[in-house]
Design a protein around this nucleic acid. Sequence first.
DNA 1: TTAAATGCAAACGCTTTGCAATTGA
DNA 2: TCAATTGCAAAGCGTTTGCATTTAA
Lengths: 132, 132
Amino acid sequence: MQLQQRGYRLTPQRMMVVDALHGGADHISAEEIHEQVRARYPYANISTVYRTLDLLKELGLVTEVALGDGRVRYHPAEKGHHHHLVCQKCGVVFDLPETAISDFGDVLSREYGFLADLRHLAIFGLCAECRN
Amino acid sequence: MQLQQRGYRLTPQRMMVVDALHGGADHISAEEIHEQVRARYPYANISTVYRTLDLLKELGLVTEVALGDGRVRYHPAEKGHHHHLVCQKCGVVFDLPETAISDFGDVLSREYGFLADLRHLAIFGLCAECRN
DNA sequence: TTAAATGCAAACGCTTTGCAATTGA
DNA sequence: TCAATTGCAAAGCGTTTGCATTTAA
């Protein structure tokens, strides 16, 4: 486990958070993680979930994205990166391959020297159906 | 005034919110708008500010952006559109011309039929200085 | 053994909401 | 006149924090 290799304690709670990230649906929220963990260990606290997610973010093991519903959603880096097109009218969310944005990242690097974090973006707008 | 033309009441509070958006610094927050309005009319309430901002958003008269400090910032459409590069290490924020992203919008439209709202984005990453 | 991690409870910060009173058209 | 708008106060919501207790190593 990555945590232990990097000098962090491997606690049951942390393992359960990681399990929830890998096992459940993609783009799980902190509260959903908490529910899953609590099903196994009722004393688990949501602050521990947040603290673990912060750690995993720091280590680059999860990315986060806000899809517009007011909560942050998490995705394990291990499953690969991608983006989202979110329709603001009907709410549908399409996935977008990571590569669809890499040209843009190149431009930012070349022309602005900026190393953009383009691992997990949400782009809002109107889907093909709703744009009419 | 756009509001009146579209059938909304032109109240002093709404005018003061619009004034704050145009007069003050770009990317003003709801609370900063509230402060400016309250300086002129002490009974002004922040919920009115939020309600006015919602209305202006609906009408396309302001865009919003989150630069990572936990609050939403507003920008009058009248001043033109642009984007931001936000350094996650030193916090510096660079402006990016709207056109820097238009190619990407074309790709999304052509390949996915998606009409992306690319008026005011924040891209996070590392600036030229901090990426080393 | 002991610094790191957890659970708990409370706070936080921004934003939203219900409702009675006010007001623009 | 009267529906739209406001002010007020309270709640809502996801997230963070301080601190005593527990625990991985």
